[in-house]
């Protein structure tokens, strides 16, 4: 399936993944690790290990430190 992935502040790209892909699989083309981002669907974070159930996600680089 094709999923539109918007990396907030950077780029939007269509990503083709297997039907049983997880949200983490959507990050592979962007060289992003699940540890440094949050994947959001309709404005709410979703667990990266869950299967993709939407055709559009936003990826936010985490803003954190000490």
């Amino acid at each position: 399936m094709d999923v539109t992935v918007e990396v907030v502040g950077e780029e939007t790209r269509a990503v083709r993944v297997a039907d049983d892909a997880t949200y983490a699989d959507l990050l592979a083309p962007f060289d992003l690790s699940p540890h440094e981002v949050s994947v959001l669907v309709e404005g709410r974070p979703v667990p990266e290990d869950q299967p993709v159930e939407t055709d559009r996600v936003k990826v936010l680089r985490l803003i954190k430190g000490g």
């Binding site: 709410r44 936003k58 936010l60 954190k64």
Partner: peptide, 11 residues
């Protein structure tokens, strides 16, 4: 000693 912006609120 740490911060992390709530992702949904930040978005």
């Amino acid at each position: 000693t740490e911060y992390e912006l709530d992702p949904a609120e930040a978005l």
